[in-house]
């Protein structure tokens, strides 16, 4: 399935919005971008490598030649792209459970959005608005977002440990090594093939 490349799932969804409502969404995203603590829940979900929301105005679809027919649309469109770990159901469930207020702020301006809770109509809505990926590439197919973050912590700890133990006696080295192991012990999970999705 092209939506999936090993441990990462590519999701695309497009929803129509009345043109005057897009300014509300833009304002919300401006606030979300400016006040980092508001992104806390998104960061804590910790299974999204990258995500983006793109508003395409009804007159904003690129027209590259005279032969290309001019679009005549009534709605602006909100396109959502996500690169996440896990299955579609896990993702939508987690979104609904953890980010329901944030999601409602973003999508309540889209036509017929049912709200992110209860989850069943929310899933039906996403499924209707989603379209499939034709080609998907990831530079680290066996690594989840948590793996990436843990690996960087190990790398930093190793560099610190190397500096700290330069010129130390074997006994001092061993003592520092034990501290190093304690520091990194929670970050040594192994990357590998993705489990079979359900």
């Amino acid at each position: 399935m092209t939506n999936i490349n090993h441990k990462t799932y590519a999701m695309n969804a497009i929803t129509p919005m009345k043109w005057w409502k897009t300014w509300i969404v833009r304002f919300f995203f401006f606030i979300l971008g400016a006040i980092k603590p508001l992104q806390k829940d998104l960061i804590q979900l910790s299974f999204i490598h990258f995500a983006r929301w793109v508003i395409v105005k009804r007159t904003g679809f690129p027209r590259l030649s005279e032969q290309q027919p001019q679009e005549e649309l009534k709605y602006d469109y909100l396109i959502f792209f996500s690169n996440f770990n896990g299955t579609w159901n896990q993702y939508i469930d987690a979104f609904s459970a953890v980010l329901s207020q944030g999601l409602n702020f973003i999508w309540r301006w889209s036509e017929k959005f049912p709200g992110s809770v209860p989850v069943t109509p929310f899933k039906q809505y996403i499924a209707r608005c989603q379209f499939d990926t034709d080609y998907y590439y990831t530079a680290y197919p066996y690594a989840t977002t948590n793996d990436v973050k843990a690996a960087h912590r190990v790398q930093a700890a190793l560099e610190d440990f190397e500096k700290e133990t330069a010129g130390k006696s074997p006994e001092e080295f061993k003592s520092a090594y034990l501290k190093f192991m304690i520091t990194v012990q929670c970050d040594l999970g192994e990357t590998g093939k993705a489990p079979i999705g359900t």
């Binding site: 969404v25 833009r26 995203f29 979300l32 971008g33 992104q39 998104l42 960061i43 910790s46 999204i48 490598h49 990258f50 995500a51 983006r52 929301w53 793109v54 508003i55 530079a139 680290y140 690594a143 977002t145 793996d147 990436v148 973050k149 843990a150 690996a151 960087h152 190990v154 790398q155 190793l158 970050d187 040594l188 990357t191």
Partner: peptide, 23 residues
């Protein structure tokens, strides 16, 4: 892009691959 979220936004691809190898 109207809003862009990157969970790790201060490491290059090379740094990430090297870190995974180190891990």
């Amino acid at each position: 892009t109207t809003f862009y979220f990157a969970d790790v936004n201060d490491k290059t691809v090379g740094q990430t691959l090297a870190a995974l190898q180190t891990q």
